[in-house]
Design a binder for these strands. Structure first.
Lengths: 324, 324
DNA sequence: CTGAAAGCGCTTACAG
DNA sequence: CTGAAAGCGCTTACAG
């Protein structure tokens, strides 16, 4: 027999489809007898309501799309886990839109999500020029990315993060720390804070940008070349993976860490912390960011008139390890 | 104005809803004139077909559920990325079911997925006694886990993996390598291969099992205690994270790696390889496993009569690093 | 307290 | 080549 439908349940219980539906949804007044008969029929048939039909009626899919560069990255994997958890707790399912680090996929997913009538979108990619967001007419929340006036951004305190990392390196005796980041654009607050603190101490700031589109291998090569050519006694990397590249370079070239080279990373995902507990890093409150993004999104999904306020940045903290 | 529906498109193009639908789906014979008018109306209104309504008719949601212990783990994050990619390529969307390492969530998700009429499920968790799979009446593929006669399992060659790791340790001079794993049950082929090779070389096999439910901190504590109490000159860990715990313990206690302690991990995810390129590990073909799982699932989703054959295990390989 | 009917937004035979 | 009608599996006013 095929998957049972409400009709089958109703027939078996000897009631109308409408009544069976009411029992399932516990709406209106039902006699105990009918309630029991329907419940029995449901159990006997192993009936499960078709959520697709329900979505069509309710104009609500209870689906949220999460757009990430790739969940293979520790930071985004952890973010995805917590977004999923927070959504599930509130009765939403999550469609994972993994862009495999390409903007084309992001654009495609944006379209697909709307066709699938998701109730909202959380996006955490950093591609430039993805036009779709302007056209989208459904609630969106961005994580660590400005997408426009109408789209709230949840983020952590990048300025303080840059401050903490730089001050820490200097306090540990570094005089020539470099900041390594993907791109050194004006909105990069970590880089801005690094420059400011270096200047405040009368030290020369140097920012090494390996480029947004660089593959992992290209990034590693660029960093190793830079470090080999440019003497320095400290590295403030804009993410932990990059910091670990510097650490590996130090090992290969016989530099002592932290005596010759102090290293500070950024993000502080649990996965990398477990893998390399000794790495000093600026820890983003990944779970709080995920939960907050979900809270803001749910507020807008359940009340379309909810005002779009910009969120205050969430606090970061420095985690000390032996690399600095 | 509200989100346009097919009715609006039809009205604007001056055709019937049926005709508009045919243009969208490119079915039957349509005059060029009508085609053009409908296409224009679609563009002007920014119309996007409601996929939920389509699913209801087609009895096909184009949705697949991926059940993972947690995507915050490097291995499962990478697996999820590749499953997503392979599914997207074939026109399927992926609902991410992150169990946060608890069996209860898995059971709940199994139910939820069926209610949402996903077309199929890929599961990669390792919980015991999840009853739901027996009752489920839709295509399922398991990754590295036996779930019953009717459910195909995609996996890599664990026996060879255990063989390679153990032989490598011995070849590098280890005489007293320990195998560290979550649970040492009869079906654990990596442990079986380890025992067999140790015996073949006349060496004593010791398996340290930290327990399936152990938290990361508990695992680390258990491993450090064990290593401190039990002298050994090699570690074959059943995953990379565990191997890195041994590596960190060696650093903290002043053991030289690989001279005093040789370390081999397992999995070889790109994320951990990037973070710690020096780790010797048995590399699972994560992408191939993901793609194969999707292929097998799609075959069963598109042809319910497709036979359930057990898959040959995919090949693994040893990746050399400085830890051994 | 329960049922008949309309409708969610589409697609698909069936006529014409 | 195009349209009217039925139907996917439900829910929800509206009667009774």
């Amino acid at each position: 027999m095929n998957r049972p439908k409400l009709q089958d349940v109703a027939a078996r219980a000897g009631v109308s489809v409408a009544t069976a539906s009411r029992v399932l949804n516990n709406r209106g007044y039902l006699s105990d007898d009918i309630r029991r008969r329907v419940d029995e029929a449901v159990a006997e048939l192993g009936y499960r309501p078709n959520e697709i039909a329900r979505s069509l009626i309710g104009q609500r899919s209870a689906l949220v799309g999460l757009i990430v560069p790739t969940v293979a990255d520790a930071f985004f994997g952890e973010l995805a886990t917590h977004v999923e958890g927070a959504l599930a707790q509130r009765g939403y399912k999550m469609l994972l839109c993994d862009c495999h680090n390409t903007p084309e996929r992001e654009e495609k997913y944006l379209d697909l999500l709307q066709g699938n009538r998701v109730d909202g979108i959380i996006t955490s990619t950093h591609n430039r020029n993805v036009a779709g967001y302007g056209r989208a007419d459904l609630p969106i929340v961005a994580i660590d990315r400005r997408l426009g006036e109408q789209i709230p951004t949840v983020r952590s305190d990048n300025r303080t993060g840059g401050f903490l990392a730089t001050e820490h390196l200097i306090a540990r005796g570094s005089r020539s720390a470099v900041h390594i980041t993907a791109t050194d654009h004006p909105g990069n607050e970590r880089a801005a804070a690094y420059r400011e603190r270096m200047a405040a101490h009368g030290l020369e700031a140097r920012v090494m940008a390996y480029g947004f589109g660089a593959s992992v291998d290209e990034r590693r090569a660029a960093i190793e070349t830079w470090l080999t050519v440019n003497p320095c006694d400290g590295v403030f990397a804009s993410d932990d993976v990059t910091a670990l590249m510097a650490l590996d370079w130090a090992r290969k070239t016989g530099r002592r860490v932290p005596e010759d080279l102090r290293i500070v990373g950024y993000d502080g995902s649990a996965a990398l912390h477990t893998a390399v507990p000794g790495l000093t890093t600026v820890r983003q409150p990944i779970e709080r960011m995920a939960v907050r993004a979900v809270e803001v999104l749910v507020a807008r999904m359940t009340d379309a008139t909810a005002s779009v306020e910009q969120e205050p940045p969430l606090p970061v903290e420095l985690r000390h390890g032996w690399t600095s």
